[in-house]
């Protein structure tokens, strides 16, 4: 493999990894607080892309405004899902909340098929993202560079919120011990709503960038990236926000390098992430940065 070609693969790996990282954070935050696998998260990612798509197509917003509105609206969808489908089940057996999550996920997918139609749609790409850089004879689209930059800014903003602000402190407290946090005067329901809003907003950013990169969107686009991002969250250590970022990048890198160095196995690309999952669960179930989740009696 030539060096420029390797560079191209590396750029692809980093941009794919940042997308996984953005989605993985939503999973890990919700899991850290509620011990719930939010199966609908991949579909929230899909909704973000569709909202942006229709913002440009129907209301003909300028693309940057459409993207911003889509992120806000998707955060709101996240809050609504928590309110409608998860909050009534807080005290129910855990399996009920999981079933509810599957129900929401399946509802969003089929809602999208019915309302947006099942056919893939071409995603609008502003000219800024389609410039081509030629580095040593290898063409790289500018969007490949923008994705890690935007992801990095979003992740920095999220880290600031979680580690430097009061609502972030409340999130960490609820994730550590919900009951004690409640006794200490933390509004648990609002904090959980904020968690869903932040996670869904990041998923929407991911969805829009996914649309920019592979310029088409379809109702089931969230399923496989969502599953892989969950694997990334486990790989990084479920419940740990920095872990989810690292896990996302590692998974993106591993996947692209598999395709780059073993093209014969490229068809098995989607299976590779789950192989990693099984290996991680066997060897180091707490992931790279995870702490043991203590069992509460």
């Amino acid at each position: 493999m030539t060096f420029p070609l390797f560079l191209q693969h590396l750029a692809n790996a980093i941009s794919l990894g940042s997308l996984y990282a953005l989605i993985a954070i939503g999973y890990t935050m919700v899991y850290g607080i509620l011990r719930l696998i939010n199966f609908a998260h991949g579909d929230i990612f899909m909704m973000g892309a569709y909202v942006a798509f229709y913002g440009i197509l129907l209301i003909s917003l300028p693309w940057w405004l459409a993207f911003a509105v889509a992120v806000l609206l998707t955060s709101f969808i996240g809050i609504l899902i928590d309110r409608g489908a998860y909050r009534p089940l807080r005290s129910a057996p855990r399996i009920s909340a999981l079933i509810s999550a599957i129900g929401v996920s399946f509802f969003l997918q089929n809602f999208a098929i019915v309302v947006f139609s099942g056919r893939p749609k071409a995603f609008f790409r502003p000219p800024l993202f389609t410039r081509v850089f030629v580095i040593k004879g290898v063409n790289i689209l500018s969007v490949t560079f923008f994705i890690p930059v935007i992801a990095f800014i979003s992740l920095a903003a999220l880290s600031y919120i979680i580690y430097r602000t009061k609502p972030g402190l409340a999130m960490r407290a609820v994730s550590h011990d919900m009951e004690t946090a409640r006794i200490m005067g933390v509004d648990v329901d609002r904090t959980i709503a904020l968690t869903f809003a932040l996670g869904s907003g990041l998923a929407a950013i991911g969805g829009i960038m996914w649309g920019l990169r592979y310029p088409q969107i379809q109702p089931l686009m969230g399923v496989i990236p969502g599953l892989k991002a969950f694997v990334a969250a486990i790989l990084g250590g479920i419940g740990s926000v920095p872990g989810a970022m690292i896990g996302g990048f590692v998974l993106g890198l591993a996947e692209i390098m598999l395709v780059a160095f073993a093209p014969a196995l490229a068809g098995y690309r989607d299976a590779f992430a789950f192989l990693i999952l099984i290996v991680v669960l066997l060897l180091r179930p707490t992931g790279i940065l995870g702490r043991r989740l203590e069992e509460k009696v």
Partner: peptide, 28 residues
């Protein structure tokens, strides 16, 4: 065997992943 050894809902994601793997293998 690897997922049920752990507490938590890893089985859900591993079994869903398994179903995907089977489909990928079926295609390839």
């Amino acid at each position: 065997a690897p997922t049920l050894r752990l507490r938590g809902d890893y089985l859900a994601i591993a079994s869903l992943g398994f179903a995907e793997i089977i489909r990928v293998v079926g295609n390839n």
